[in-house]
Amino acid sequence: MSAIKYTFQIEKDDFSRAGEASSSIKKILMQVGSEPSLTRRVAIATYEAEMNIVIHSDGGTISVMIDPKCVMVLAKDNGPGIENIELAMKEGYSTATDRIREMGFGAGMGLSNMKKCSDEFSIESKIGEGTTIMMNMCVKEGE
């Protein structure tokens, strides 16, 4: 199997469809026979990224590059950007509104969950431009 790439458009504030991209990505990974534990890590990380784009950004995209042993996820939004990345990465820190919290999100665990699922994780953000998160996840030995 050679590397395959998919890109999904994520709309701002579209809570009824939030999670559809991650669900599609998970189904693709299951279809290509990706290792179950890797599939689960990718699903969780992309879902957290997707929810972040819906909740906090002006919309964006999630791309996945799938090869037999590794999956790379690129989550890119169109702003507004994160002022203090260090603070945003801290477990429990969130700028989400009460409405988001009532839906079960905004607990300040999203970015740390994504990092926990990834073998490589990087985040770049510029105020007024947007945020880009890169995550790489590979099959672990013994899986």
């Binding site: 809570f15 009824s16 939030a18 999670g19 991650s22 669900s23 998970k26 179950p36 689960r40 699903a43 969780i44 879902y47 929810m51 839906m103 079960g104 999100f105």
Partner: peptide
């Protein structure tokens, strides 16, 4: 919680 995100969460976490 009874919204669709609960189902999505269950789906992602197996």
């Amino acid at each position: 919680l009874v919204n669709c995100q609960v189902i999505r969460t269950a789906e992602m976490a197996d």
